[in-house]
Amino acid sequence: MKPAPFEYHAPTTVDEVTGLLASHGGEAKVLAGGQSLVPMLNLRLARFEALVDIGRVDALRTVARVNGHLRIGSMVRQCDVEESAEIGAAVPLLARATPHIGHFQIRSRGTVGGSIAHADPAAEYPAVALALDADLEIAGPSGTRAVTASTFFTGTWATVLEADEVLIAVRFPVWGEESGFAVDEVARRHGDFALAGTAVGIQLRAGVVVRAAIALFGLASTPVRAAAAEAALVGSAVAGLDLVGIGHAAVAGLDPPEDLHASSALRRRIGAATVTRALGRALEEAGVA
């Protein structure tokens, strides 16, 4: 046994989850799919007084259309996203990000909410949530609140979640016709976290971009929107777009982290290339639709 000892709770309702988190006064951690948390526990990079396993809370496994959004429960697993025709049709960007996550043996357990709450800056789902302006439903001892993805992520592995709160669902906006979506990333090996990557949504009307969403991951302490590049795209005709130039514009001003896998400058160049490629595929799909 590698992890330090902890108490284990397996509640079946959200109220019990928040009650247990509160009763441990910040010393308890939510366990969802465990594909990031358990390695950290096994390596003793993290230890907690208690784990609150949300895997038996059935209410967190539902998927439903609500007011132009697809509401996905936080315990919906990544393998379910891959296999769900409903999610693939309503939120194609989420479906397309999924095969990039780890390996299929990881996606058997990993969850939508777990990935977003873990908030790894190089992870795909946080970038998808940010690109699509998803709303994150959070439950705490005094009720629920919703936070937009643009304010949810505060740093590497850090979010606005309080110690007695739990992410219960993510509401992804469903885009209309003439939309295209793509995820592009570069990793050293298949299944590794990306050195850099991009999630893109594009909507056209009569050959003109009317909506552009570009979120970059692996290039800062949180996923970031390429706001200037988006602004340059909206209102432009598809014909004649300089996708390489937009890629460079998207990463201008970023100061990506540096490690043994890639320098800051290399990450920026890879980031620009992934923007160009993802945009190209998204535009093509939007134009064909």
């Binding site: 284990y8 465990g34 594909q35 096994n42 357990r109």
Partner: peptide, 13 residues
Amino acid sequence: GRATRSCLVFAVQ
């Protein structure tokens, strides 16, 4: 029925 890493799952789960 799903292939999973058994080192990343606790028996209690």
